[in-house]
Write a protein that binds this DNA or RNA. Sequence first.
DNA 1: ATGTAC
Length: 477
Amino acid sequence: MLSGITLTGIHEWEVPLGYVPDMRVSGRLFLSETLGEALEEGAARQLANVATLPGIIGHSFGMPDIHWGYGFPIGGVAAFSEDEGIISPGGVGFDINCGVRLIATPLTLGDLTDRTSIITELFKKIPTGVGSKGSLRFSGSALDELLGRGSAYVIEEGLGLPDDALLCEENGHMKDADPDLVSEKARKRGEPQCGTLGSGNHFLELQVVSKIHDPLTAQAFGITEGSICCMIHCGSRGLGHQVCTDHIRNMEKASKRYGIRLPDRQLACAPLTSSEGQNYFGAMAAAANYAWANRQIITHDLRTLFESLFRIDYNEMPLIYDVAHNIAKWEEHIVSGKTQRVCVHRKGATRAFGPGRAELPGKYRDTGQPVIIPGSMGTASFLLAGTETAMQKTFGSTCHGAGRVGSRKAAKKALRGSEVSADLKKQGIIVMAPSGDAIAEEAPSMYKPSEEVVRVVDEAGLSRIIATLMPLGVIKG
DNA sequence: ATGTAC
């Protein structure tokens, strides 16, 4: 572990005041000894830098998948007070509401013997890759509706089941969204892209439930051992990216205007009460709604394809849950014994609300919310449940995934996509992507083991492991 | 992550 950072609990480390100058609160990191050895000095410094920002409450948090990011670390969580706090695009990330959802099916392994043809059909149906366009166009008032209402709008347009929106974090819709705050440039980028996967670590994957760790909760979540489910990981595409870019420029000016001292200009931010802060919030929320609509349309395409490939019905493929990995939002948390409204930034982190929270759908209110943690192409993904400990310790937050070990550039140099695909095929996993490089960059060996990250949050109490999901076939960008 | 460049 880096010097100055000390163990204070189970997998819990303190980044003390003074780790960088002007920290207002200390940092908290959740790491095993092994993951601690891999902690980048830059990521620890970024975590400490966040602790210097006005109005931060509690601690600046780092999850076990923490790594260096734009300004704020990826795998970071920070909450800010309503009156003195700030909002920062760097604390959300470029891919606003990048997130993941899990869909159940009535299928079992025996139904998926010809995985190559199933993955081929999915790859034909769902556009992937940088700049990819879908078959639908949302412009003018349709785009306003989509940005303003998220999942609910596309479901009303016939692209989902009535319950789908309720089974998303925030019910698939941030009500603070203001489509008028999304620039024309961002809108233009978004018009043809809703219903597309994108590139990088985004994917659609067919998985088998290989192990149930908690039968009662698994039952409440609607999954059984041996059943097939589908995980979709994507975000707000070029639209969200453009919203972030647009507002970072504004925020750089705003930080100066409000006299906020920044240890790193990538922490550009504005008071939550300022017009710049509220403008970003409204645009970010609209981009978040776009991302939920995006995952919803892909879900619709999956269901209609599976209806035609198998003898199953659209409504036999319910959404288990949909979580955001990159978002900032208002939430009520108990701070020093009092309920307080705070703006929680989660960047590469997942909400993990425990039992009893009013925001959760009735059927998950006793178990805590489903938390969906993707692994890499060849490794396990996990379904977990939120906990009361997460409410008390991390503003109801946990990790979001495995985290890279090597750069994309290094991956392309060291590996050939065709060899990675062949290796995966030997394990029974079929991979399709627009290019070999896309597969090389995402090779399982380029990611930390997801098991270790999930073990840490489980043992630290930030969430509970409910089920292990093993990959069978994947389409990537 | 991203029409991978202001």
